[in-house]
Design a protein around this nucleic acid. Sequence first.
DNA 1: CGGATCCTTCCATTCAGCGGAAGGGCCGTA
DNA 2: TACGGCCCTTCCGCTGAATGGAAGGATCCG
Lengths: 252, 252
Amino acid sequence: MRHDPMKGRSVTGRVLAVLESFSADRTHLSLSDISRRTGLPLATAHRLVGELAAWGALERDDQGRYRVGLRLWEVAALAPRGLGLRELALPFLEDLYEATHENVQLAVLDGAEVVYVERISGRHAVGVLSRVGGRWPAHATGVGLVLLAHAPTEVQESFLTSPLAAFTRKTIVDPARLRRVLAEVRRTGVAVSDGQVTLDAVSVAAPVRGPAGQVVAALSIVVRAGTIEPPTLVPAVLTAARGISRAIKQAS
Amino acid sequence: MRHDPMKGRSVTGRVLAVLESFSADRTHLSLSDISRRTGLPLATAHRLVGELAAWGALERDDQGRYRVGLRLWEVAALAPRGLGLRELALPFLEDLYEATHENVQLAVLDGAEVVYVERISGRHAVGVLSRVGGRWPAHATGVGLVLLAHAPTEVQESFLTSPLAAFTRKTIVDPARLRRVLAEVRRTGVAVSDGQVTLDAVSVAAPVRGPAGQVVAALSIVVRAGTIEPPTLVPAVLTAARGISRAIKQAS
DNA sequence: CGGATCCTTCCATTCAGCGGAAGGGCCGTA
DNA sequence: TACGGCCCTTCCGCTGAATGGAAGGATCCG
């Protein structure tokens, strides 16, 4: 009898487990690493990894370690909610970036987290922890507040009944307070997130809408706290967000 | 006896076939589409697609059609030769873009083709056919000429003995002429590609080097033919390319 | 309303996938 | 130089995950 999590697991499931064994802080893994992280026996991992490498989903470097391959990135680049969205948005992100040289981000909601689809950062802009392809709990980000505010009610309720992670003393962790913040976001049309992820950053975010008016993404600018008054950033963020919404509509 | 291309094909191979059934001009596919394009029986396609969708490699839209999912994009975003390279390069690409507002591209070589890892295009810049995540035959592009010029000899020989596709009357299709062009690229350090993909575009490309000095990518600017003399673009392109090379070295 | 096409589900059969074991290679240390 | 530890590769008898034809329901369109 097998006493491992992979027992009875499909081949597809194992293949996907291999792919998800890579992370932002572990982009290069040995075969043994992959075996350990997935729970797959070495011989099994070897076979699956070999097939993925032959196709290009994985690549092997000079030290024999594996990394996510270009071929997988090419296929994944066809994701409408990933690069597809980013392609349409980029001119407007560039506009906002050139006007401010601050951090400009585009994100979508996935479950209880935002996934960053794009980020352009100025050299002197305040440091941000977001990473393209990375995730963050929605409640603690400007883009996340916008996306949650416009999410279906059941998504919001599910979120509000789960524990809210704190990153700084300013992170919103009280569900009642979060409800009020989300209502305010819906009312004003923008979210301001001050010091929720790092104390020195404040962001202003606005919704990006799909053809039917539904919110499909959110755009934000992140600046150093105490440098620019957030309300002064609202017109520019709204302008860029509306431009992206228009581009999405025209692409439908 | 099975009379289909999938007979004897591994599950991993079938899963990858499902993923590669999507293309830039077919980002949304029905289950039957996927079955036809992969050669998989409907029931088999249904099972595999269901597992991929459950994990997030595929998503299903409101009309029941499938598209590449965000989760796959997230994993693929960890590809060092994809977004990894792009993240390091972006500040320099932005510099070049802001200085010129023309098309700025970053590409890597994969076999006989270049894969575009990044592209920033100005609104009024000449139209380009490249697409992030897309491929193009190396010989017909500025970035490709740079990458081929610095590729291992066997890669170059293999390329030169294969038929060279023509896209315009200016596309280099004569192997002897291509040899001379590649030698010139090595000598001068940059490639100028004039009208090879479209007659109205001319590009200037320079190599991006890895920690050991090897050429790992190429950067280019693409402008409207007859507007800016290519040699005047060389310093800016070289500056940006060297900046990226330095960033790569520092990240190692 | 009927034909065409799509999608979902079932299940008897089968062969692709499994993974423990063995062996070779590499590296670091005594 | 030798040895221990760890990594990677390969083998192969066994078995259960995968298979896909068939059936049935749903949807769309002329």
